[in-house]
Amino acid sequence: MGTTLCPELSRRNPYWIEKHRYYELKHFCLQYPGWRRAYAAIDSLTGSNFSPGKVRQNPSELDPTADCAEARLFYSDRMEMVEQTAMKTDPDLVSYIIKGVTEGRSYNNLQTRFGIPCCKDTYYDRYRRFFWLLNKERK
C-alpha cells in the first residue's frame, strides 16, 4: 500500500531533500504505529526495564519507575514530532497526512477509504512539504 511517489525531486522544487534523507524520514514515520503500541503497553506499575538508547552505569541500580517514564517520553516525543509536523503542514489535512506517512497509504487509498477532501496534486504537495518540514525538525 505504499505511495508510488518519486523519492527524488528536482532541486528546483521548494521541498527538495536528498533521496536517502527522504527514505530515512519515511522509515522514521513508518515506526509510528509501533511507537503507539509500545507507549500504550508501558505499564508503570509492572516496571518495564526498557529504556531506549540508555546504557546503565551500574546495572545493580534498578529504577523501574524512571525506566517507564523515560520510555514513555521517548515514544511520546517522536509521536508528537510527527503529529505537530503534520499540523504545521496543513491543519485541514492533518489526519490524512498522518495516515499517509505513518501507514504508507497512497492518495488513491485515502480517497477510496476515507474520502480525502482534496485533489491528488494538493495531497502530494502537502506530503512533500511534510517531509521537508520534518527534515528541518529532525536536524
Rank of each mutant, 00 (worst) to 15 (best):
M1C: 05
T3C: 12
T3A: 08
T4F: 07
T4Y: 12
L5E: 12
C6V: 13
C6F: 03
C6D: 11
L9S: 07
L9I: 14
L9C: 05
S10I: 11
S10Y: 12
R12C: 09
N13P: 08
W16C: 04
K19S: 09
H20K: 07
H20I: 00
R21P: 01
Y22P: 07
Y23I: 01
Y23H: 13
E24G: 01
H27I: 00
C29Q: 02
L30V: 00
Q31D: 09
Q31L: 11
W35T: 03
R36C: 10
R36Y: 05
R37F: 09
R37G: 08
A38K: 08
A38Y: 04
A40Q: 13
A41H: 11
I42M: 11
L45P: 00
S48D: 11
S48P: 00
F50L: 15
S51L: 12
P52Y: 13
P52Q: 11
K54S: 05
V55D: 05
V55F: 09
V55T: 13
R56A: 11
Q57C: 09
Q57A: 14
N58R: 10
N58V: 08
L62A: 13
D63Y: 06
P64T: 07
P64N: 06
T65S: 08
T65Y: 05
T65K: 03
D67S: 15
D67Y: 06
A69N: 05
A69F: 03
A69I: 09
A71C: 10
A71S: 12
R72V: 10
R72F: 03
R72H: 10
R72G: 05
L73K: 14
S76Q: 14
D77L: 13
E80K: 03
V82E: 05
E83S: 07
Q84R: 11
T85H: 08
A86E: 03
M87V: 04
K88I: 01
T89F: 04
T89G: 07
P91F: 07
P91E: 10
P91G: 07
L93G: 02
L93Y: 03
L93A: 06
V94T: 13
V94R: 08
Y96D: 04
Y96W: 03
I97R: 00
I97G: 01
I97W: 02
I97H: 00
I98Y: 00
G100W: 01
V101T: 04
E103W: 07
E103H: 13
E103M: 13
G104T: 03
G104Y: 02
R105T: 00
R105V: 00
S106A: 08
Y107C: 10
N108D: 13
N109A: 10
Q111K: 14
T112E: 13
T112H: 10
F114P: 00
G115T: 10
I116C: 06
P117G: 12
C118Y: 09
C118R: 06
K120F: 06
T122C: 11
Y123H: 10
Y123R: 04
D125E: 15
D125M: 08
D125K: 13
R129W: 10
R129K: 15
F130Y: 04
W132T: 02
L134A: 02
L134F: 02
E137G: 00
K139S: 12
